[in-house]
Deep mutational scan, measured.
Amino acid sequence: VTLFVASYDYEARTEDDLSFHKGEKFQILNSSEGDWWEARSLTTGETGYIPSNYVAPV
C-alpha cells in the first residue's frame, strides 16, 4: 500500500477531483496518469484525482 500525506489544502475544481485538507492521508490507487493521481482518502473514504505536487510520501 502506497501512502501519501497532504502538504496543503486543495479544493476540487471538477467532479473527478478530490478536495482535501493538509495532513489528510491517502492510498494511491493509480499514479500512471502524470501529475494527477487517483487516490482514496483514508479520512473520508472518498476516491478521486489529486494533484501529485500537493502530497508527500508518509
Rank of each mutant, 00 (worst) to 15 (best):
D16L: 14
T44P: 02
E15L: 11
G45A: 04
S32H: 10
I50E: 00
Y54M: 12
S7I: 15
I50M: 02
A56R: 14
R40H: 05
G48W: 04
T43L: 13
G45Y: 06
E15M: 11
L3G: 03
G23H: 04
S52Y: 08
S41A: 06
A6G: 03
E11K: 11
P57G: 05
G34P: 14
K22V: 09
S7K: 15
A39K: 00
F4N: 01
L42Y: 06
D17G: 15
Q27S: 07
Y49M: 14
D35M: 11
V55L: 12
Y49F: 12
D16E: 12
L29S: 04
E38G: 04
A39L: 02
L18H: 01
A12H: 05
I28S: 01
G48A: 02
E38Q: 13
F26Y: 01
S7E: 14
Q27Y: 14
W36G: 02
R13S: 10
P57D: 04
T14M: 11
G23R: 01
D9K: 04
L29R: 04
D35I: 10
W37A: 01
G23W: 05
W37Q: 02
L18N: 01
I50R: 00
S41E: 02
Y10H: 05
N30K: 09
A56V: 15
G48N: 01
T44K: 03
D16S: 14
A12M: 04
T43A: 10
W36N: 05
W37P: 00
W36E: 04
P57I: 08
S19L: 02
E24L: 03
D35R: 08
E24G: 02
Y54K: 07
Y8I: 09
G45F: 07
G23Y: 05
E33W: 10
L18W: 04
E15Q: 12
D9P: 07
A12C: 06
I50V: 08
L3E: 08
A39Y: 03
F4I: 03
A6S: 05
G23V: 00
E33S: 13
F26H: 00
P51A: 04
V58I: 13
T14D: 11
W36I: 07
D9E: 06
S32W: 09
T2W: 12
Y54P: 03
S52F: 07
E33D: 15
S19P: 05
A56M: 14
D16T: 14
R13D: 08
Y8R: 12
G34Q: 12
R40W: 07
A6R: 00
Y10G: 00
A56T: 14
S32R: 10
S41W: 02
I28A: 02
Y54I: 06
L18C: 04
S52C: 13
E46P: 01
T44Q: 02
I50S: 01
F20Q: 00
K22S: 07
Y10P: 01
I50L: 06
V1Q: 13
G34Y: 09
L42P: 01
E46G: 07
T44N: 06
Q27L: 14
R40P: 00
L3Q: 07
S7W: 14
N53C: 15
E11D: 09
L42D: 04
F26S: 00
D35N: 09
K25C: 12
S19D: 04
N30A: 08
R40V: 10
S32K: 10
E24R: 00
S32A: 11
D35P: 10
H21S: 13
A12N: 04
S19K: 04
A56G: 08
K25N: 06
S52P: 07
H21D: 06
K22Y: 06
D35L: 12
V1G: 13
Y10C: 05
W37R: 00
D16Q: 14
T44S: 09
W37G: 01
D17S: 14
L18Y: 04
T2P: 11
L42I: 09
T47L: 07
V1N: 12
Y54Q: 06
T14W: 13
V55I: 10
F26D: 00
E24N: 05
A12V: 00
T14H: 14
L29D: 03
S41D: 03
E11A: 10
Q27R: 08
T47D: 04
V1H: 13
R13P: 07
S31M: 15
T14Y: 15
V1T: 13
Y10A: 01
S19A: 06
L3N: 05
P51C: 11
V58S: 08
A56Q: 14
V5N: 02
V58M: 12
D16P: 04
E15S: 13
H21F: 13
G23Q: 01
L3S: 05
D17Q: 15
E15A: 13
Y54A: 14
G48D: 01
G23S: 03
K22P: 03
E24Y: 05
I28H: 00
E15N: 12
P57Y: 06
P57M: 09
D35T: 10
G23P: 01
L29Q: 05
T47E: 08
S31G: 09
Y49L: 14
Y49K: 13
Y8C: 15
E11S: 10
W37K: 01
Y8E: 10
Q27K: 07
S32F: 09
F4K: 02
W36T: 06
K25A: 08
A6H: 00
V1M: 13
D16H: 15
S19R: 04
L42W: 06
F26K: 00
E15G: 13
I28K: 03
L29A: 04
W36S: 06
W37I: 05
K25P: 06
R40A: 04
T47V: 14
P51G: 03
F20D: 00
Y49P: 01
T43P: 01
E15V: 11
T43M: 09
L42V: 08
L42M: 11
S41F: 03
A12G: 11
R13C: 14
L3V: 13
V55Y: 03
V58G: 06
W37Y: 07
Q27N: 06
Q27A: 09
A6D: 00
T14S: 14
G23E: 03
G45C: 10
L18E: 00
D17I: 12
S19G: 07
E33L: 14
G45M: 07
F26V: 03
T43G: 06
G34K: 13
V5M: 10
F4C: 08
F20N: 00
T47S: 09
A56I: 14
